[in-house]
Computed example of a mutant assay.
Amino acid sequence: MEFSFNEEELMIQDTARQFAQNQLKPNAQALDHHNDRELFLSQVKQLGELGFMGINIDSQYGGIEAGSVAFSLAITELARGCASTAVTTSVTNMVAEVIQAVGNEEQKSYYLPKICSGEFYAGAFCLTESTAGSDPSAMRTTAVRDGENYILNGSKIYITSAEYAGVFVVWAVTDKEAARGKGISCFLIDGNTDGVTVAKAEDKMGQKASATNEVSFDNCIIPATALLGEENKGFKIAVTELAGGRIGIGSLALGLGLEAMDYGKAYIKERQQFGQPLANFQGLQWMVADRYTELEAARLLLLQAASLKDDKKPFSTQASMAKVFASEKANDACYTALQLLGGAGYIKEYPVERLARDVRITSIYEGTSEIQRVVIARDLFA
């Protein structure tokens, strides 16, 4: 594993850092309080125009071919500015990578340029259902073949970016008689397709500017050409691509943890009690030292997983290790930062309150911490 970045990776990291500091960070508090959809989407579109929606996508389809390490670096920096924007970027990249990995030439040529350019504000990953969360093989959404079409019925929940996504990657049961996980197929569905209904955005604890919606399919007719990959072999697609998505969410968590700790560290250097700065007290120094050590370890785990992915080596276990560690240590970091601020940390005027709410979901979505441990243990005991 390389411990230094190439020129392109450094440029992407720096561009993401500047965009986060100049564009995202000044607006993050307002988006959290007022949910200004127009402002949010304008920022997302700018990221598309800068190339951040196709970081690991081939240039022939409008991507920048920078790789997974660059993706991790970019998401970490964007999260420091606005977690809602970072998760939209992460999931959209995941959707693009699904299409690139499994799609045929017609599908790739049609959808990828629209995602990479920002013409589509986002892509949506429609897997989770009310009865199929950590166990997606239990899904009930169906796709029945009808001549040259499929007819979809069912619903998905907790879908990031659903209300403004240009394309949905949707999983559905196509063979009810097959063993669980064996009769599932994957489809590409345009966001404006008849029979698709997107419910109002959920009222969430954090990451409020990013829409999370239920998506329903009511006798939704799609052409057979919408099938992504082979029929009845879609479950493997979901499992494979979720591993890459975990690098994104782990990187997002890392960015939140670093932003919170940087703010907390600066605060205790200025805040005085007992006639001296709080930063002079060893108890607080050790709290800060522990959190930064953990976040650095998280960063290295994420880069290891990303590097393995770039080298086309097995990385699923490493991605789960990185995701569970980064998300849990970022939660610790945000709550430590809140503690460093004392009462001020609990007030919305200070960003740490928002960061603590934003980070909580990172140990839940893209696979809970418990599921990551299942993945890791299966590999260890194989």
Results as ranks from 00 to 15, higher is better:
N331K: 15
F325E: 08
L338P: 06
S320A: 15
C334P: 01
S307I: 06
E353D: 13
E353Y: 15
I347M: 15
K329E: 12
A337F: 03
I347K: 14
D310M: 01
Q339D: 14
V324G: 04
A344C: 09
A319G: 01
I347C: 11
V352L: 06
A326W: 07
F325R: 05
T336A: 11
P314L: 03
F325C: 01
S316Q: 14
A344V: 11
F315E: 00
D311W: 00
M321G: 01
T336E: 05
I347V: 13
S316L: 11
A319H: 01
A319Y: 03
P351D: 01
K313V: 01
A344D: 14
L340A: 07
S316A: 14
Q339G: 10
A319M: 08
S320E: 02
A305H: 06
Y335M: 10
S307M: 08
E349Q: 13
G342L: 04
Y350G: 01
K348L: 15
Q339S: 15
K312F: 05
M321A: 10
L341Y: 02
D311A: 13
F325A: 05
E353I: 14
K323H: 12
S320K: 12
E353G: 00
A319I: 08
A333R: 11
T317C: 09
L338F: 01
Q339V: 10
A344W: 13
F315R: 00
E349M: 14
E353P: 02
Y350W: 13
F315P: 04
K323L: 10
A333T: 03
A330S: 09
T336D: 05
A344H: 13
N331D: 07
K348T: 13
L308N: 00
T336R: 07
N331S: 10
P351H: 06
I347H: 13
A337R: 07
L340E: 05
A337H: 05
Y335K: 11
T336K: 09
A319R: 11
V324Q: 08
Y335H: 12
E353K: 15
T336I: 10
G342D: 01
A333L: 08
E328I: 08
S327P: 02
D332T: 11
T336W: 07
S327Y: 03
K348F: 14
C334F: 04
K323E: 00
V324M: 08
A337T: 05
A305L: 04
V352A: 01
G345D: 04
I347F: 12
P314V: 00
S316D: 14
S327D: 00
I347L: 15
F325S: 05
P314T: 02
P351E: 02
S307F: 02
V324D: 05
V352M: 10
K329C: 09
Q304V: 11
I347R: 13
Y335F: 14
K323M: 07
A326N: 00
L338Q: 15
A326S: 12
G342M: 08
Y350F: 15
Q304E: 12
S316G: 13
K348R: 15
S320V: 02
D332E: 14
T336S: 06
F325Y: 09
G343Q: 09
D310S: 01
G343H: 09
A322T: 03
D310Q: 00
A305W: 05
M321F: 07
K312H: 12
